[in-house]
Design a protein around this nucleic acid. Structure first.
Length: 751
DNA sequence: TCTTCATAGTTTTTT
DNA sequence: ACTATGAAGA
């Protein structure tokens, strides 16, 4: 292990070896920044730093897990296990649970996911008798989330004239009251939302210097990955932890900052050197991932952005193929064309070497259908995750309630599931009484008589049955492991009966899902990794911060990856299709108005292209099915931002002045004001290429396609190979007549 | 109180 | 297309 530093290039090694103080590693795409981070951790351990005193924060659980695995190889298993490596959220969750007393929560606090928090906001808006058309839960949620990401508590919110004015302008002056109410309701429920995990950590440290100092002395070295995507809260917490020893290393690439909608602030990385004036700057500029053409194309794209740290990313790999631009008639055609290209390339690659990247999850559908049709195995990441499904959320709500009876969202979720005759009227009465007596809704439900709740005896009886069973579960939680208690809860709560009541396909799939959950819990309890805590609480802790990316199921069979570009950050593939390059989709319609947002969209495109190692494709459709109807689309302005020398354009495409003028009428007759649709790219008149007389880039051929050749007659395509002018195919013309044809010269029609 | 049917609004990205 | 809400009927 002593010479693992030899695995690195000079600039990487410099960055790894500097451990005396703060450092900023600005790392271009594919330049091995995660590698630097990992090796730095290994180096620190080798230098004698105990693993548990190293804090390594990553953006995804997956990245953290990979880091651990790598450390295990470089150092040893025990070090890897003791390392504090995880996402911001999971590390802070762990800290908050141990220090919960300091901030007025109990050890058993639950985490509200965004659905829970939206539902709570809805109830509050209703209770405050506000118009839910004006106060849309989603909008309110995002405003509160922004506030929290900027460390603004309800009191600070109410005192901030700028915010209040902006709320008034948005016709929602009462958000500050909603926020206050939401805040206290979460506290009463002993629950935190995602943003709270950051905000309360900051508060914990800020208001308890002795606690902070304990962690400052524990974490002798702090490392942060993807620093460009940290928000103010994260920045502030890290700053506090590192304040004493100032040994911190952050790694990031301003060109890949794509999470501003979640409060990420690019200034954190741009101004790192202001916070740590003594810090050393390292730049990693050699890209080891992609061909020169891809790197050059990506550079030419990102140069169109104004705000950035200039750096020169270069590749020493081969020049490589041009980026192929595919134009399609429709979203389905786009998917078919991608499927076709995959089939052609499949001769040289595995399915796992391909990724289709899109702007929105909704775009996955066409690809699913097309891939199924052409029997291309695929795996979709994102979308509705397993833990978001209704039956799973219901089951988890029982688990949560068994651990924390004050979890109001869990309570509301299952008080009448399975149906037990406690409807909206009763819940309303309970909520009223809870407000009146300033206690939790659970207190009322568990003891309605003590609070003179106006309920009839039958309802009281039903309530008692429910609360008794929850009390029983909570007793059992203490005695049994997660698997045993989970099985019992699913059975005794009536969930199992409910989903087994009939044999509809929906119910069957629900049952399967619940069984899958049970088997996940079984795994959790009896896997070799988990030697210590097999309680239900530990299980919930483990999964509440999991995302879809983290499940590694079906890793055995190679599949094409389908995911959003956001989800693809940090990943790489030999072949990448960036699809849906159309105005109002990519860039998204919501980002077109502001230059800042537009630059973020451009960075997103940059991220997409730089995922690719060898063959990169970019596609757009003329027509796309969206929101239940077909719409005409124009090619994205971003296509113009890549220098044309790096692109392999379809022959029909000419982005020149003439066609731009052609487009003029289109904009004039467009119903939307012209300024949101800048007349950039051409409308493309795509004529189907049936006769293959020229070296058109997309030839519409596929294996098994039937063709009609001028001299040899009808035949079947056996194989395709080569690029551009040297593109060839083997064709079987029957009667043992197999011929190889150079496409450039062959005269034929596709049948 | 529960179920069913109709209608309206909605899609950016995620821990 | 898909969910969430509301009205009406059981």
């Amino acid at each position: 292990m002593e010479n693992f530093l030899n695995d690195l290039n000079d600039s990487q090694r410099e960055a790894v070896k500097y451990i005396d103080g703060a450092s900023l590693v600005v790392a271009g795409a594919g330049s091995g920044k995660t590698r630097v981070l990992t090796y730095k951790v290994a180096h620190l351990i080798q230098q004698g730093l105990p693993p548990y005193s190293i804090l390594a924060l990553t953006f995804t659980n997956k990245a953290a897990r990979e880091m651990r695995n790598r450390i295990e190889q470089l150092v040893d298993y025990d070090s890897a296990r003791r390392l504090w490596a995880g996402t911001f959220h999971s590390v802070f969750y762990r800290i908050l649970r141990t220090e919960s007393d300091f901030i007025g929560f109990t050890h058993a606090f639950t985490i509200y996911d965004s659905a829970d928090s939206r539902s709570l906001l809805k109830t509050i808006i209703k209770e405050m008798k506000l118009d839910d058309k004006t106060y849309k839960a989603n909008n309110v949620q995002s405003r509160i989330s922004t506030a929290k990401n900027n460390l603004i508590t309800p009191a600070m919110y109410a005192a901030n004239t700028d915010i209040l004015r902006s709320d008034s302008n948005a016709k929602m002056p009462l958000i500050r009251d909603i926020y206050q109410q939401y805040w206290s309701r979460c506290r009463a429920a002993n629950a935190m939302d995602f943003d709270d995990l950051l905000l309360y950590t900051d508060i914990l440290f800020r208001s308890n210097p002795q606690v902070l100092e304990r962690y400052q002395d524990l974490f002798l070295f702090v490392l942060v990955d993807e620093y460009q995507d940290t928000n103010f809260a994260q920045h502030s917490i890290i700053k506090q932890i590192a304040a004493k020893h100032r040994r911190i290393c952050v790694v990031g690439d301003d060109a890949q900052s794509i999470y501003s909608f979640r409060g990420a602030n690019i200034d954190n990385i741009l101004r790192f050197q202001d916070t740590y004036p003594e810090s050393k700057l390292f730049k990693l500029e050699q890209n080891y991932r992609s061909t020169q053409n891809i790197v050059d194309a990506a550079n030419s794209l990102i140069q169109k952005n104004k705000e950035q740290i200039r750096k020169t990313v270069f590749s020493e790999k081969e020049r490589g193929a041009l980026i192929r631009v595919l134009n399609a008639y429709s979203d389905r055609d786009e998917a078919d064309k991608v499927a076709e290209e995959i089939r052609l390339l499949k001769r040289r690659y595995e399915y796992s070497d391909f990724a289709v990247l899109y702007r929105t999850n909704a775009q996955s559908r066409a690809f699913e259908e097309s891939f199924r049709k052409s029997s291309i195995p695929y795996r979709i990441y994102g979308g509705l995750s397993f833990y978001q499904r209704k039956e799973i959320k219901d089951t988890l709500a029982y688990f949560r309630l068994a651990i924390n009876q004050y979890d109001e969202e869990a309570f509301r979720r299952v008080i009448n599931y399975p149906v037990r005759g406690i409807g909206d009227t009763t819940i309303g009465k309970l909520a009223d009484a809870a407000q009146l007596h300033r206690v939790g809704i659970w207190d009322i439900a568990a003891n309605p008589l003590a609070y003179q709740t106006p309920l009839n005896a039958g309802t009281c009886q039903k309530l008692k049955q429910f609360t008794d069973s929850i009390y029983y579960f909570s007793e059992e939680v203490r005695k049994k492991n997660a698997y045993e208690i989970a099985k019992e809860i699913i059975k005794r709560s009536g969930i199992m009966d409910d989903i087994s009541s009939d044999q509809t396909p929906e119910n069957l799939s629900r049952k399967e899902n619940v069984e899958e959950l049970l088997s996940a819990i079984h795994n959790f309890c009896f896997s070799e990794n988990n030697t210590e805590d097999t309680s239900l609480t530990a299980f919930l802790t483990e999964i509440s911060l999991l995302t879809d990316q983290d499940s590694e199921k079906d890793a055995d069979t190679p599949r094409v990856t389908l995911m959003t570009i956001h989800a693809a950050k940090g990943l790489e593939f030999k072949n990448v299709f960036v699809v849906g390059l159309e105005e109002e989709l990519f860039p998204s319609a919501r980002c077109i108005m502001s230059e800042r947002d537009l630059e973020e969209e451009r960075r997103l495109f940059y991220v997409a292209i730089t995922r690719c190692e060898e063959n990169c494709f970019v596609s757009y459709a003329k027509m796309r099915f969206r929101n239940g109807q077909s719409n005409f689309c124009q090619p994205s302005r971003f296509l113009e931002d890549i220098d044309q020398e790096y692109l392999d354009l379809p022959l029909e495409t000419k982005w020149n002045a003439r066609s731009r003028n052609d487009n003029f009428d289109f904009f004039k007759t467009s119903s939307k004001p012209a300024f949101i649709k800048p007349p950039k790219l051409t409308k493309i008149e795509h004529t189907p290429v049936a006769t293959h007389a020229t070296n058109v880039d997309y030839d519409g051929l596929s294996i098994n396609a039937r063709i009609d050749h001028d001299r040899f007659g009808r035949g079947t395509v056996l194989s395709l190979e080569g690029e551009g002018d040297s593109r060839k195919m083997w064709v079987d013309f029957g009667d043992n007549q197999k011929r190889q044809l150079l496409l450039k010269f062959a005269k034929y029609k596709i049948i």
